[in-house]
Amino acid sequence: MSSYPEPVISVTRVSKVYRSGLRMKRVQALTDISLEVERGEIFGFLGPNGAGKTTLIKILMGLTEPTSGSALVFGRPPRDAAAKARLGFLPESPYFYDHLTAREFLGLAARLSGVPKSEAAGRVTGQLRLLRMEKAADVQMRGFSRGMLQRMGIAQALVADPELVVLDEPMGGLDPIGRKEFRDIIVDLRERGKTIFFSTHILSDVEMICDRVGIVIEGRMVEVGRLSEILTSDVESIEVTVKGVTGKTQKALERVSQKAIKSGDQLLLTVRNEDDVDRVLAICREMGGIRVVGIDPHCPTLEDYFMAHVAKAGRAS
């Protein structure tokens, strides 16, 4: 990672203001965003809908210009053809040419990306095989399902074997099997030394595969860092599940718990720490006839962290 002289993506204090409507109303899409993505990383760019994720990606792809600040890809301005030759991009909800076949479209993508003619056909076939699209290779894309279009989008992004892959909401439109396959592809890309920058709001995928994340809310970057740094391994609470509880015992257990949920003959207790677990166990021993069926420590998840930030931003605004 450190052998590469400069970050693959470098965003410094980028702000973006759009003007919309007849009165040219000012819409602040991004405010003072800074981040760096190093070679070989999987970087997850998180945020709720409308947070500004796609705007930043468009800036990185040279589709729009920042109002202030600078964005560099491989140390060059995003519109530089030399920078674009080294990346593959999948936009959100991709749509392609209705009357082209999958093979023709991937051939075009390879040609535009500078893949030599002698290699293009092999690359196209390889991508079709990787994305399990061989049977639809010579079918016009107008009949493709949302999931098939998403696969085509990924295939065209990877066909030139780029060093950097930028994916905007890549899991959209994929079923659970497709998502699993897609995660495998991303992990495989990292193993081959590629850099991946992807935006999403599906947090479980991020937790599984990302090295670092950036969280953007209302156009502002609220956190950038390694998941292990953001999510501490401190136990936040412990869930104790007990069976055979009577009314009097239940009241005693509820007194030492933060939360108690009765479901059938089971009682799910949420307690703060190990001392409270000991108290619960003592009550169970004392009362008799109660069986402890589970003790699960609960560490904060990315979702908890993310939701806390969203709630905080909501309160602030």
Partner: peptide
């Protein structure tokens, strides 16, 4: 409109 231009212009195409 169909955003195919995003894919085209993200390639090394001027």
């Amino acid at each position: 409109e169909k955003r195919t231009i995003y894919i085209m212009l993200a390639k090394p195409v001027r």
